[in-house]
Amino acid sequence: MSDAILVKDLTKHFGSITAVDQISFSVKKGEIFGFLGPNGAGKTTTTRMITGIIKPDAGEIQILGYNMVTAPLLAKQKCGVVPETSNAYPDLTAWQNLMFMGEIFGLPDAYARRQSETLLRAFELTEHAGRKVQSFSKGMKQRLVLAMALLHEPELLFLDEPTSGLDVSSSRLILSMLREMNKRGVTIFLTTHNMDEANNLCHQVGIIRSGKLIAIDSPEKLKNTIDRLHQVEVSFEQEISEDLLRIMPGIIQISHIGDKWKISGENKDALIRSLVRLSEREGLTIISLHTLAPTLDDVFLQLTGGQYS
C-alpha cells in the first residue's frame, strides 16, 4: 500500500511559539487515521497545513503523490475537508451550496446534480434541499458539510470533530457513512477528542502534545504499551473504607466511583487474590469483580500527562 499522506519534519511557528515541531508521519491509502491531542497541542495547525489552508514554515507534505506546498491545486482536488464548525454558506440553500462546490471542483453540471441528489438522499436532506442553510440544525449543517466534501468523490477525506455536539442519530449516520466510504477505499484523516470514536474507527492513531508527535500506532498496540497498569473493578455489599484496600500489596491507585472501587496494581493476578483474601478476612461479600483492559483514554491521558482535550 502506498501513502495517501506523507508528512516530513513539518514545522510551524507563530511568533516565538512553535506550534508544530518537526513532526513526521504517514497514512497509508485506505486507512482511517485518528489524530488526537489536547487543546493547543497543534492538531488544528497540523491539519490546516496538511489541507493546504496555511503554509508550513518548514517540512514536506505529500498528498496522494502531490506536494501540498508546490502543487496545492492538484493536491486539494483529491481531498475533501470537513471542519469542526459548519462552513456552508448560510445564505445559500443546501442545493446551491452543493452546486457551488461542484463548480469549484470543476465537475460537469449533470454529474454534480446527480451526485448532489444521491448525497442529499444519503444524508436525509432531500426535503430540505431548497431551504437556506441558516435555518438548519447543527446536525443538518454537519451532514450537509460532509455531503459537500464528498461531492467530487475525494480519495482522501479530512474530518475535524465530525460528530462533536451532534444528536445521536446524526452522529450515527455520519459514522456509518465514514465506515462505508472507507470500505470503498477512501482514506480518512480524523481529528477527534472522542476516544471511543478513534478506538472503533481508526486503523492507526497519532497523538500530538506541545507540537510534537509523541505516539503513533494502532489503537490496540497503543493500549498494550500501558498494559503494565492492571485495573480491577470491585463492588462489595458492605461499605468499606479506602484505608482497608490500601493495605493490600502492589496497589498503585484506588478510586471510588458510585458503589464500585477501581483499583490499579502492578499484577492483576496478585490483585484479585489479595481482594479475595481481604473479603474473607474482613467478612465482606463481593457483588461483582471485573478486570479492566486499558482504554485509549488511559493511553491518551498517560501520554499527554493527564491533559484532556
Partner: peptide, 14 residues
C-alpha cells in the same frame, strides 16, 4: 467571520 473563506481556501481554487 463566517469561516466560509476557510472552505474556499481548502478547495482547489487559487
Amino acid at each position: 467571520q463566517a469561516k466560509t473563506l476557510e472552505r474556499l481556501v481548502s478547495c482547489p481554487i487559487a
